[in-house]
Design a protein around this nucleic acid. Sequence first.
DNA 1: GTCTATACTACGATAGAC
DNA 2: GTCTATCGTAGTATAGAC
Lengths: 207, 207
Amino acid sequence: MAYDSLLDVAIGQFGERGFDGASTRAIAAEAGTVMSSITYRYGSKEGLYLACADHIAAQLGGHLEPALDRVDPQGPLDASDAVEAVAGLVETISRMMLIPDVEPWAQFIIREQQRPGPAFERLYASIMRRVTETVVRLVRSARPSLDESQARATSITLYGQALVLRAAHAAVLRTMGTERLSEAQQELLIQTIRANVYAILKGEPQS
Amino acid sequence: MAYDSLLDVAIGQFGERGFDGASTRAIAAEAGTVMSSITYRYGSKEGLYLACADHIAAQLGGHLEPALDRVDPQGPLDASDAVEAVAGLVETISRMMLIPDVEPWAQFIIREQQRPGPAFERLYASIMRRVTETVVRLVRSARPSLDESQARATSITLYGQALVLRAAHAAVLRTMGTERLSEAQQELLIQTIRANVYAILKGEPQS
DNA sequence: GTCTATACTACGATAGAC
DNA sequence: GTCTATCGTAGTATAGAC
């Protein structure tokens, strides 16, 4: 149990303070053990960091893979079914961004995106790639008039609407005029995003 | 000149490595001076950090205030003019996100958003607030059927489409299948965002 | 005003007790 | 396996030379 506790604490610390800023001593102390446990279990501070990335990827998978499985194995889709599928996926991602538990993961990933290293590689290969490629494929089904690049650009903007809830969390709170998002405010944001997905994917007559 | 150089270097280092990870010695050395200059000029490492926030706010203002001035003093707007104004503002913000010079500022701000402190306070008060409030006001003109909360939620999602270009830069590059965004790819992303703004703000008949 | 020298603290890693 | 003790390095801050 000390095992998982060490990882969870480390994700929080790395996310909050960055790789250099986080202290192995502080991580170990918060997890109720001593610094040399980290060396013993993970070899080094960097080993712990990579183990955090793998742990996050597994947790993200747990949240997203059920939704991905629901749309992934299917063949070519009817356009309006594809719109529905994208809206559902983006909603799932948006809801995830609002779960308190994912806050440390999100901070870790956002940090890692700014200067991607081996940890980002693992995250991308294990879960992010599947999410983006699935959305791109669905967007192409929803709007066949888009070419591959246009569908990829559109997918990025759809993702951005969910991402902003975490990446600019402080600004979101101020814009909504609160210190904590109420249930109703969260639902309003999610339904707004969902409506935008429909507007974006249906906004142009399909050829 | 050593003055500004110290700030620019510090913004890059703080953005990249975080407050704790950045070293005053390294910052001073990269700026061609010694660590004690920082103590002398800014009092402490934290004083330097706050000075960085003010410097960034001033630079952001230089990029955004001309566009804000263009739409701000006007009274109630025709809905389609308001849509046009929002599209122009979001485009300005999106283009800013893609300028190489703003990368260090963006990293600094994103970091600060994850655990906002006094530096975020300064950034928000001096420039971010004006941007968000202006967009909210324009969105309400563009879609009078939205109430205040809905307009705020919509504004957040519009901002998210620009933010993702920086906050998830590594994922954007992979999704677009490149290691650096070409001019054409940048333009594609911006035009996609612009089209989305139109789709979102015109997507519903106005009451 | 800018630098050198230094005080003090905390870091990651390792060796060895148990 | 888990802890204590310790090494070498690097951090911020300060005092004082020039």
